[in-house]
Design a protein around this nucleic acid. Sequence first.
DNA 1: TTGATTACCTAAGCATATTAGGTAGGAGAT
DNA 2: ATCTCCTACCTAATATGCTTAGGTAATCAA
Lengths: 200, 200
Amino acid sequence: MARQGLTPDSVTVAGAELADEIGFDAVSPAELARRLGVRTASMYAHIANAADLRARIAALALDEMAEQISLAVLGRAGREALVGMMNAYRDYARRHPGRFTAATWQPGAGDQVLAAGRRHAELTRAVLLGYHLPVEAVPHATRLLGSSLRGFVTLEASGSFDQSRPAAADSWPYVIDGLHTLLSHWNDTFPQPEPEPNKK
Amino acid sequence: MARQGLTPDSVTVAGAELADEIGFDAVSPAELARRLGVRTASMYAHIANAADLRARIAALALDEMAEQISLAVLGRAGREALVGMMNAYRDYARRHPGRFTAATWQPGAGDQVLAAGRRHAELTRAVLLGYHLPVEAVPHATRLLGSSLRGFVTLEASGSFDQSRPAAADSWPYVIDGLHTLLSHWNDTFPQPEPEPNKK
DNA sequence: TTGATTACCTAAGCATATTAGGTAGGAGAT
DNA sequence: ATCTCCTACCTAATATGCTTAGGTAATCAA
């Protein structure tokens, strides 16, 4: 038997590809071993266990996403940066559904995942820079942006929008422009001093 | 051995409680049987298989959520209805993390889940009624609202906001008011005829 | 009490996760 | 070339989970 020459990294990449094909939840040491033409037990030379395999794929996906978003934001500012970031995020999810699921999966996030999470937060903050928000508003705007983005893309990917007309893609511009408008008029929407915008 | 008097419904309820305690992903026929003081094989008298158990819990959660949201929206309109709905959704997720995970879980949604999904869409449309949006805008607004809501609550529940200050709860009013503002000024943000608001 | 129903059980087959210890493929040194 | 070491991969074995088939006894209707 010729050796496959597997390494932790190559196994992780293969796992990511497998996730895109059969779904992240279906990825397991056994399934991946089958795919790689190797016995299940041999996987344990490269990964610690099933959870570790999944965590590695998640970290890989998070890094790839951050990379794509970086490229899309580079050299842009304001609305262009926002559009670039949002589209990069959505495109990645559409191109790599399994990896995207992995990236949005957290149960017991390790250091790798936490670091990638911070990188994403950094990118979002960079995009928001172009909207000149008051400093205290940045965390809130980051979360609002992140929530809408992740929510839409997750729902679209899971097929939740398939039941209704028009196509999900037609609603995407509304999400982008809605966010852009909100960020552009932040101070009008949320009056400055001690913002306690919600009563009841 | 005294009988437990289990039924498909009581098993589903027990499964939902278990999900809130140990996480939806950890719920299985074996684990639930342990909890109920019954042999694993005995579960198959009440459920078809593991996927069926999970689907039942998901349907239960979806129904409970719709119920809570109905109560929160009843007799209210406009901003009050929006706030009621969003808070009901978020509160349910915080009170029942396992059930919430189940409700946002879809892989191969059955009839039950699809019906519940429609009920949720109905409720959202009802809330949007108070904003007097142009008819063509309703699906888009529904998705925008749904995305932000689900995105924020999911991220909050998964602990993604725990790493940064201020507390996640402090950002919640911004999500509510941001959505409210957007819905209130829909026609300003998205000019009427043939809305093709996003270019590049 | 009898009879029927059915909630629960034991037994068994098969798949996966994981560990322990063996074997051989291939790179580098001699 | 051949020796040697490393290690990628293997076989074997245990534990556990999912699922089906076929019994047993608790409960209810008559």
